[in-house]
Amino acid sequence: MELSEIKPTTEHKMNQSLEALKGQLAKVRTGRANPALLDTVHVEYYGSMVPLSQVANLTLIDGRTIGVAPWEKGMGAKIEKAIRESDLGLNPASQGDLIRVPIPAMTEERRKELTKVVRGEGEQSKIAIRNLRRDANEHVKKLVKDKLASEDDERRSQDEIQKLTDKMIGEVDKIIASKEQELMAI
């Protein structure tokens, strides 16, 4: 890898870490209904386990209810069972062809617990970003050792990588603060 490739590659990987964090936080339940809550639910479909979104249409009925419309008639009971047995603590109810999944209001204790989970996810992302910084700096040092870059280039690159790292960690903090605010809102 050349010196000019290190920063863009590192930035791309750090952005992937941010996207992964956003994906993880989408699964953390707030008081509002969100079809992404059911992304982890898998249903048995002709002998194999498939994500719920591949056998049903997920919609929002209102702010606290998710609607699940199975594509095949016989899937309703299996979908209900899969949602009930997931670790989400949801209790679906059939209403003809539509399965309604009400999202219960959260207690203060549960909100604080989820805030800790969110902070833990944020810390994992920060660790991943710092590891990417370390890897990038090691690449730069290797280039200097192999006489493919000067020590001035090394210092400049390390400064740029540090600024990028600080920016990304700031983004993680913003995302975490936003999610915590969303969790604590009643």
Rank of each mutant, 00 (worst) to 15 (best):
E19W: 09
I129F: 10
A20F: 14
A33S: 11
E123R: 10
R130E: 08
N34S: 15
M106K: 05
N15E: 13
M14C: 08
K145S: 14
M1I: 04
K78W: 03
A82N: 00
A149V: 04
D62N: 09
S48H: 11
I169C: 07
K142Y: 07
A77V: 04
H42S: 07
K13S: 06
K167M: 12
R133L: 15
V101Y: 01
Q158A: 11
P35I: 05
V101S: 02
K27V: 05
E44C: 06
A33V: 08
T107C: 08
L58C: 06
N131G: 11
G89Y: 02
D159K: 15
E113M: 07
Q95W: 02
G63R: 08
Q181N: 13
I103K: 03
A56N: 03
D146G: 08
L114P: 02
R111F: 05
R130H: 11
T40E: 11
I6L: 02
Y46M: 12
M184R: 09
K78G: 04
G47Y: 05
I169P: 03
P104E: 10
D39Q: 09
E2S: 13
K179T: 12
E171W: 05
T165C: 12
I103G: 03
H12P: 03
I186C: 07
I176Q: 07
N34G: 04
E160I: 13
E151Y: 04
E11K: 12
K142A: 13
L90E: 00
L164P: 07
M184N: 12
N137Y: 09
E5P: 00
T107R: 06
L37V: 04
S48N: 14
T9R: 13
M184H: 09
Q16E: 14
Q95N: 14
I127L: 10
G170I: 10
N91Q: 11
S178W: 10
A82C: 00
D39C: 07
E160H: 08
N15Y: 06
R155H: 14
K147E: 14
R130D: 07
G120S: 13
E2H: 06
A20Q: 12
I169F: 09
G96I: 05
L58A: 07
